[in-house]
Measured scan of single mutants.
Amino acid sequence: MEVRTIKVFTTVDNINLHTQVVDMSMTYGQQFGPTYLDGADVTKIKPHNSHEGKTFYVLPNDDTLRVEAFEYYHTTDPSFLGRYMSALNHTKKWKYPQVNGLTSIKWADNNCYLATALLTLQQIELKFNPPALQDAYYRARAGEAANFCALILAYCNKTVGELGDVRETMSYLFQHANLDSCKRVLNVVCKTCGQQQTTLKGVEAVMYMGTLSYEQFKKGVQIPCTCGKQATKYLVQQESPFVMMSAPPAQYELKHGTFTCASEYTGNYQCGHYKHITSKETLYCIDGALLTKSSEYKGPITDVFYKENSYTTTIK
């Protein structure tokens, strides 16, 4: 009895394709271990004539594949690729409408935090270190965002349907971005203890939790000093293409032309909904596939993004 075979390709990165001759009487799992086709788990399936010449994702289970996976995804987590594939199996079914010149995501599976993050990423200057993220990001900007969303979920250790947080998501993504040249110098002034300067680099240099107003941050924000008295913390120097200011959701007025974009969060910790506000020729609110415009805006804002380049204080 002759062994019926077909020729397929296996890959971990969709760049390096490895030619395989597979036995049609055995499952993919018996031949390769966990195997995925377009995100779908085909591990328990036997090869079919229609699979001839198709590319299958496999887990990096030998040295060659491990090197290829690390170079593309910059992670050695053995569960990463499987999590990416199972997320992709959902995100490829989502709709990605162009809204006001940006790629958004039609609401499904509690994905409003991903839509808000995706919209924000198209408006701030950011370059990702893992080629996987950078490639998928370019495709997302062009309207094909399924891979990018699935990668975000995998890097953030999230599953489809789980509630997510924009600030946490951005923080994970910033860790995989090139923020080497970003720098922030802060000064804390206390009447009792004097003053202390701190220099922050990388992710810490672009994120701040405690106030939404970048102007206020430049002037000074009140913080408790270690001595128990009130101290003032203010920005001395900022070198970065953008800054992200966050605070627990509270009524906040966004003035046209003073910011790049913002995240609105309605609801409580267990259950809520994100919308995205962007400042173009007027203010726009993007909620999944829905767009509304207004000249002014007041609502429960939790993150505001500002364009920056270089700032030095005039406070002496």
Rank of each mutant, 00 (worst) to 15 (best):
E2R: 10
V3D: 14
T5K: 14
T5C: 13
I6P: 06
V8N: 06
F9W: 11
T11F: 09
V12M: 06
N14L: 08
V21P: 10
V22A: 13
S25I: 15
S25C: 10
M26N: 14
Y28I: 08
F32V: 13
T35W: 06
T35H: 15
L37F: 12
V42A: 10
K44C: 15
K46I: 13
K46S: 12
P47W: 04
T55W: 08
T55V: 12
Y57R: 05
L59G: 08
R66N: 11
V67P: 04
A69K: 05
H74C: 06
H74S: 05
T75G: 04
T75I: 08
T75Y: 03
T75P: 04
L81A: 00
G82M: 15
R83A: 06
S86C: 14
A87W: 10
N89P: 07
K92F: 05
K93A: 11
W94T: 03
P97S: 10
Q98M: 15
G101F: 10
S104Q: 01
S104E: 08
I105V: 12
W107E: 03
W107M: 06
D109I: 02
D109A: 04
D109M: 07
N110Q: 09
L114Y: 00
A117N: 01
A117K: 02
L119K: 00
L126M: 07
F128Y: 07
F128K: 04
N129T: 08
P131E: 05
A132K: 11
A132W: 08
L133G: 05
Q134A: 11
D135A: 07
D135F: 07
R139K: 15
A140T: 08
R141K: 15
G143T: 04
A146Q: 07
F148Y: 03
F148K: 00
C149K: 04
A150Y: 00
L151T: 03
I152H: 00
I152D: 08
L153I: 06
K158E: 04
V160N: 00
V160Q: 03
L163D: 07
L163I: 02
L163C: 15
V166D: 00
R167H: 09
R167A: 06
S171W: 15
L173E: 00
N178Q: 11
L179R: 04
S181Y: 07
K183Q: 04
R184H: 03
R184G: 12
V188S: 07
V189N: 10
V189F: 10
V189R: 08
C193H: 03
G194N: 13
T199I: 11
K201S: 12
V206D: 03
M207R: 07
M209V: 15
G210S: 02
G210Q: 03
E215S: 06
Q216F: 01
F217P: 00
F217L: 15
K219N: 10
G220L: 03
G220T: 03
I223T: 11
I223K: 05
C225H: 08
G228W: 01
Y234I: 12
V236H: 02
Q238V: 01
E239A: 09
P241K: 08
V243K: 02
M245W: 05
M245S: 01
S246H: 06
A247T: 08
P249F: 10
P249G: 08
Q251D: 12
Y252A: 09
Y252N: 00
K255I: 12
G257T: 04
G257F: 00
T260M: 14
C261Q: 02
E264N: 03
N268Q: 09
N268C: 07
C271P: 03
H273F: 02
H273P: 02
H273I: 07
I277Q: 14
T278Y: 15
T278W: 05
S279M: 00
T282A: 13
T282G: 13
C285K: 09
I286M: 00
D287Q: 01
L290A: 15
T292M: 09
K293W: 08
S295F: 07
S295E: 15
K298Y: 15
I301E: 02
T302L: 08
D303T: 04
V304G: 00
Y311I: 10
T312H: 10
T312S: 11
T314H: 15
I315L: 15
K316T: 14
